[in-house]
Write a protein that binds this DNA or RNA. Structure first.
Length: 523
RNA sequence: CAGGGUGUGGCGUAGUUGGUCGAGCGCGCUUGCAUUGGAAGCAAGAGAUCGGAGGUUCGAAUCCUUCCACCCUGACCA
């Protein structure tokens, strides 16, 4: 027996199967294919499904590696464009260094090499041959072993500093301000789309300076660039800070970072900028003659952000209906969905859409007119919401009569009716408002999930019951940090640059402390 | 890498004391007609060596061995 109940007050179609001849009663509620799990049910499942369903990325046939799909890559390109302009603005130029690093170079800076040793991919051979035992198959040619193994770069300091040695003789050759957009490989045990994959895309800036002071200024400057990018473009509120010794980049003297909070209360490092001191100059013997005619080692910095920012973008703003993209990074700003019965009607609407598109395009916005007649409007609405397009315009016969459009914003789901003539002026303003709104929403969220605690008990309770950032006093020792991490899984995300000086006691050891640091569980 | 889990047409799944399963269903896909203001209605149709390889058996999606991938927890990490 089959009872079919359909479209009950707008609910999804429901079919009730009542097999009286069986003991069990099965109720089947068909899913619509594009639906994603809710955040509250299973946050990480929500994230994974959203990334896939919104066409950002998918798993590849290579373990731990992802395919970034065109829509996802468009967003990354937007990020690249914005960042690249900022790098150029601050005097940097792009260059490209090899993917492979000879092992001897790689191991030159010991701490750095040690830090990455456990997750390096290594090239040992340069040729395959037909397998005599196994027809049609290939095998590594044992006669084609490399004299020196090549490390696939997990980061490029080694190859770059060995090159800088050739470029630098005098203070007149400094500073060197270079950035590269590249892929790197870190052989991760556990991977997640965008957040942690074996191969990922990033940019890495590598600069060389005559003085420590100048290098530190560069480090801080690039941190500011990242902070500005995160807040202005990604609408992502961040906290600028320095890493504790335990969380510092291997090979760096000082690591600065921007830390963001995701909707599940976990922290995510969104960018890092390192003051390398003279560590790499020492390791690669990069010396220059200074103005006084004396030899000195060069001071370095390096800084980077990766496709991990894509993960941050998703986890910071999106909701159960799909992506919520900040207009400044959205590949499509406005989608126009026509509502029509006949082709004739569609043509009329298309004309209007063309006008609207032209007026917005002139102002630098990307507009998509979704004229597919293979899908109904409701389907399109849901689809563009899933993809996070900030503004949707719907134009139907009624609108054509009244000279109006229906405007829906993705961030709040609010709809309003607007005069068509006003679209060209009001939509840009609306996009700005959306950009601001999602930033503010994320900031409010973070503020609500930021807690000051005085005792270790309180600390643990907040972590378990509330999550988020916990501001607490710390005695500054790696031992305390390690113990807290061991017991609670929370790490020191950063020592905020704007931390207020205040006398207090370390929550763990009770020793004196003069400012609070940010603890959180992190990605 | 350790512990746990999962793997069935493109996606989500039913089915696992071995045999009416010669694998069912929903979404998606194709064709025709219809429709279009929130996930398209009717009809017909295509699509699966049940993750791979071996094995047990008269018989395997179902049992065994092994490998692979993904998910969760841990260690590690941007």
């Amino acid at each position: 027996m089959l009872i079919k109940l359909q479209n009950l007050e707008g609910i999804l179609p429901v079919k009730l199967y009542l097999p009286f001849d069986q003991e069990k009663v099965t109720i089947i509620i068909p899913t619509m294919g594009k639906e994603i799990p809710s955040r509250s049910e299973d946050y990480s499942l929500w994230y994974n499904e959203l990334v896939k369903k919104a066409d950002l990325a998918e798993h590849s046939d290579v373990r731990g590696c992802m395919v970034i799909k065109p829509y996802g890559y468009s967003i990354w390109e937007k990020m690249q464009q914005a960042l690249d302009a900022m790098f150029k603005e601050t005097g940097h130029l792009n260059a490209y260094f090899p993917l492979f690093v000879p092992k001897s170079l790689f191991e030159a800076e010991e701490k750095n090499a040690e830090g990455f040793a456990k997750e390096c991919a290594i090239v040992t051979h340069y040729r395959l041959k037909n397998d005599p035992q196994n027809k049609g198959k290939l095998m590594v040619d044992p006669d084609a072993q490399l004299e020196e193994e090549l490390v696939v770069r997990p980061t490029s300091e080694a190859i770059i500093w060995s090159t800088y040695k050739k470029w630098i003789q005098s203070y007149r050759d400094l500073p060197i301000l270079v950035n590269q957009w590249a892929n790197v490989v870190r052989w991760e045990m556990r991977t997640r789309l965008f957040l942690r994959t074996a191969e990922f895309l990033w940019q890495e800036g590598h600069t060389a300076h005559a003085t420590a002071d100048e290098a530190v200024k560069e480090t801080v400057q690039m941190l500011e660039v990242y902070a500005e990018f995160a807040e202005k473009f990604m609408a992502l509120p961040i906290i600028k800070g320095r890493k504790s010794e335990g969380e510092r980049f291997p090979g760096a003297v000082d690591t600065y970072c921007i830390e963001a909070m995701m909707q599940d209360g976990k922290a995510l490092q969104a960018g890092t900028s390192h003051f390398l001191g003279q560590n790499f100059a020492n390791a690669f013997d990069v010396q220059f003659t200074n103005k006084e005619g004396k030899l000195d080692y060069v001071w370095g910095t390096s800084w980077g952000v990766s496709t991990r920012l894509m993960g941050a973008l998703v986890m910071a703003h999106s909701d159960d209906d799909g992506l919520v993209l900040p207009p400044k990074l959205a590949p499509i700003h406005v989608v126009i969905v026509p509502i029509f019965k006949h082709e004739e009607e569609l043509n009329k609407i298309a004309e209007k859409a063309k006008e609207i598109t032209a007026s917005l395009k002139k102002q630098g916005y990307t507009v998509k007119f979704d004229s597919r007649d293979t899908h109904k409007p409701g389907f399109k609405f849901a689809e563009w919401e899933l993809k996070g397009v900030p503004v949707r315009l719907a134009i139907g016969p009624r609108d054509m009569e009244n000279g109006t459009v229906e405007v829906a914003r993705r961030d709040t789901k609010e709809k309003q009716v607007m005069k068509i003539d006003e679209v060209a002026t009001k939509i840009p303003a609306l996009l700005d408002e959306i950009q601001e709104n999602i930033y503010n929403r994320a900031l409010t969220f973070r503020t609500n999930l930021t807690t000051k605690v005085e005792t270790y008990d309180e600390f643990k309770k907040v972590l378990d019951e509330k999550s988020g950032f916990v501001l607490a006093h710390w005695d500054g020792t790696p031992e305390t940090e390690a113990a807290i991490k061991e017991e609670t899984k929370a790490t020191i995300r950063c020592i905020p640059l704007d931390a207020v000086e205040e006398a207090g006691k370390c929550i763990y050891s009770g020793k004196p402390s003069n400012k609070r640091v940010i603890f959180a569980r992190a990605y």
